[in-house]
Design a protein around this nucleic acid. Sequence first.
DNA 1: ATGATTCATGAATTCTATTCATGACTGCAA
DNA 2: TTGCAGTCATGAATAGAATTCATGAATCAT
Lengths: 294, 294
Amino acid sequence: MRNDLGELAAFAAVAGERSFTRAAGRLGVSQSALSHTVRGLERRLGLQLLARTTRSVAPTAAGAALLEDLAPALERIERSLAEAQQRRERPAGRIRLILSRTAAQLVLLPKLAQFARAYPEIVLDVTTSNDPADLVAGRYDAGVQIGEFIQRDMIAVRVSRDVRLAVVGSPEYFRSHKIPRTPRDLKDHACIGFRFSSGLYRWEFEKGRRAMTVSPQGPVSFDDPDLVIRAVLRGMGIGTAMEATLAPLIAKGRLIQVLEEWCPTFPGFFLFYPSRRNQPAALTALIQALRLKE
Amino acid sequence: MRNDLGELAAFAAVAGERSFTRAAGRLGVSQSALSHTVRGLERRLGLQLLARTTRSVAPTAAGAALLEDLAPALERIERSLAEAQQRRERPAGRIRLILSRTAAQLVLLPKLAQFARAYPEIVLDVTTSNDPADLVAGRYDAGVQIGEFIQRDMIAVRVSRDVRLAVVGSPEYFRSHKIPRTPRDLKDHACIGFRFSSGLYRWEFEKGRRAMTVSPQGPVSFDDPDLVIRAVLRGMGIGTAMEATLAPLIAKGRLIQVLEEWCPTFPGFFLFYPSRRNQPAALTALIQALRLKE
DNA sequence: ATGATTCATGAATTCTATTCATGACTGCAA
DNA sequence: TTGCAGTCATGAATAGAATTCATGAATCAT
């Protein structure tokens, strides 16, 4: 914006340092730039503000009078800007986050303690949902979902490595049922499905060039992956869930993983948030904390 | 100077008007320019200062906090600039002027009373000298001299119309001497010369294409034009001086003008002063007062 | 549903801030 | 007295930003 405020600050700097050269160093410009700048200001104002010899600079009477008001005013502006900046850099506020329980367990919970310590003034409102959440409506500030998809005005940040679903059954179940060798064999098994509000999740398989999906048929389906696994542990059938979630149970022999070579990997979890010009600092902090580091 | 002060003033203007369009009108830029300007400021600061809908604008919390300091500071700067401007426009101080007595009489004295009334705080130190004064040395702030000549770093302003020298003698003198018809006839007359410190002034004549100069020969020469004329009035010989100075005496018949058609006009008096970036307001006022108006 | 008004934004243009190169001047040391 | 170092000034050139233009989106009143 073309006014003289910028140049007045330059004048004040030179007057303060009593040197174009030193003031230029402080302002990060050349001595010549400062000379032109103050000269231009004097010309526009029709006032000589600085008296210079080739080796010294001092305010004129007019310049000194102007500085009496200018210096404190500029200082007040600078202090106010610094305070505004500092308020911005100490994140606070409430972030409404929506994500699946699985994502909460795998992505959020492991980092939550450290995050809470680092940002005591940030409050997370976590809503679990296994449905893809529509962030555009504005009910949520961010969400975590599996896979990256391009949604209008949304930014996706990867927050986990590639993930894989595991298909498992209990040792008790497999005592009385043959272990399935191919996804097709699942039709002979009790399969406990996971249900979105839009319908059953079809299990996805790949081997080499062969890809297929299977709709799980069984005595029950749940809309909560934890309940799916509890039922599997009770021997009610075969189920699927994030391999990372099941790893401890598999390691302890409480669950048996099958069709492992048929299970593909997916791109993992992504944090989604709206593309905004000045997003809240709290959200920035959260993004930073959750993003997958390389 | 590249800082945010100019843009902060823009932000304050928009916040004050609660309208980009009105603020743009006040600042003399387009609405689009203001939009870009404030937007750029917000980006650089990483702060949103204004909340806008398509038909309204209001400061955000951060913007309002910043304005609490910014608005009074900007107001103080503006008031101080206005005061500095006003001080500049009330000229005061001492002007050291050098000019000939003739110029003093013809150029300065007629306007001195009005000038003194208009600028009671200006003091003129007038030094009379009939020699061309060297202003560069800095002893004088300005000078008046006949004719315009280009001098390094000097500005010439015409302060009188074309002037002409008159050659005169007293009626008593011409009772006993023939009236000269051509400049050559002057060799037969007593001519009272005027003397610069560099030597006698040679009288200059022109008629049609003929031009000549005559070195005045007579019983006495003076370095003061007034004394030259006093001697002429006493019948001691023929002398020359500014026609305008002699007009009253000629009109009264106390002096007789001769060789009138041989006397050329000269470009008149010019005020000379140094070319300076910010000349004192007092000098500006004097220049304005003395300059020849058309 | 339509028109007026305001703010936003990308591309293009205008204009200025700044640099570079160099000169003038002052102060200091030899 | 002379030479050198350092500082300020200035013209020309350049880079980059301020601003405009054109136009779209959104809101409000009719």
